[in-house]
Amino acid sequence: MADPTDRPVRPAVPAARRTRVVLADATRSRTGPGRTRSELAEQTRVGDALVRGLVRAQLALALRLSLVVLIGLGGLPLLFAVAPAVGRARLLGVPLPWLLLGVVAFPFLVAVGWAYVHLAERNEQDFTDLVERPER
């Protein structure tokens, strides 16, 4: 999925940012968190690459967890269809399909959702750390 738009490449550090220079802070202000942050906001190549990385990580996470549900739940009709013996099995006197679809499916969905919230927040934390860490 290549980005079809041709975006003009802007200067890495906009001129307005450089007007207030204090000698003692000079090295930090050029390489510190403020710079990565402004690169995000200004849509430079670096900033763009950072956002692409985040979007890719979050999408990969969402797709991986969808795959878990796709196999865990979506596979059931096929399983019951090709292996009718599974559909006839009983657990605690209740037919297995009723138990799986009527009861177990719901905690399973919540567990996947919980894992997603946890992992997505970790991805965002990683991104925030990357943007805000001092570069040296």
């Binding site: 980005d3 079809p4 738009t5 975006r7 942050r37 995000l40 906001a41 849509q43 900033g47 763009d48 956002v51 692409r52 985040l54 979007v55 979050q58 965002e124 934390q125 991104f127 925030t128 943007v131 805000e132």
Partner: peptide
């Protein structure tokens, strides 16, 4: 019709996905 993709798509993506902790 890729020439019609909005020019500000990068800014939109940043807005949609950047964590609030960055306060962007």
């Amino acid at each position: 019709s890729r020439h019609r993709a909005p020019a500000d798509v990068g800014a939109t993506m940043l807005r949609l996905h950047a964590p609030e902790a960055l306060r962007l």
